[in-house]
Amino acid sequence: MTDDTAAIAVEGLRKRYGDVQAVDGVTFEVRRGEFYGILGPNGAGKTTTMEMIEGLREPDEGSARLLGQPSWPRDPALLRRIGVQLQASAFFDKLTAREQIHTFAALYGVGTERADAMLESVGLAEKRDVRDNKLSGGQAQRLSIACALVHDPELLFLDEPTTGLDPQARRNLWDLLRQINSAGRTVVLTTHYLDEAETLCDRVAIMDAGRILRVGRPADLVAELGVHNLEDVFLQLTGREYRE
């Protein structure tokens, strides 16, 4: 069955915290099977936008539809179809890698065999009896991605998955993310590494001050602004002042 509704359709999202307009009218669409990046300096409103799209926060205005369904209010049927990696440390205390993924699998009604296979596919089969606090940064990131993928979601959200990794671990993780995307899943990524966004993403959205400044293929943005790479695009759009 082919479904041509967008993977993500966001329209006019707004969120205010006290005096701060954190998100100020965000609209964009992510197509099925796309690898999409959301970029922006600290305080640009990326996190709040992501949280509203995922259904963690209620928007003041606007709506976010995932796979054709609204993400707010919470809809368990929709949650079965999406995977979220919040950050590498979102693990249960004192459990081994294998126990972590079994616990997450059970939340989605997925059996332990599939969970073990998932652990193997991110290269953690040998580390399965290691507790979460004894895993290296790269291993913890791979485990958290495996936990997000254990129920075979159609749409995957990744929150700065390569922060704090060494170049080897980072490149290996890129390969894993490409595999996940080429298996037909839609992937949405936030990152501070512009080279990462440039190599991985089909399209990126650059945000600042609660708005989307520009959306496009990284190569097109580079050409449009007549600069060398995506980092130049980013700095030209968002300026060079220190943030937070």
């Binding site: 995922e54 259904g55 963690l56 368990p76 949650l79 079965r80 979102a90 249960f92 205390d93």
Partner: peptide, 17 residues
Amino acid sequence: NWRKKRILRRLWLAPVS
């Protein structure tokens, strides 16, 4: 612990009541 480690949020995003 679950709030600090974001497990509360992770559970909110899983189909568990």
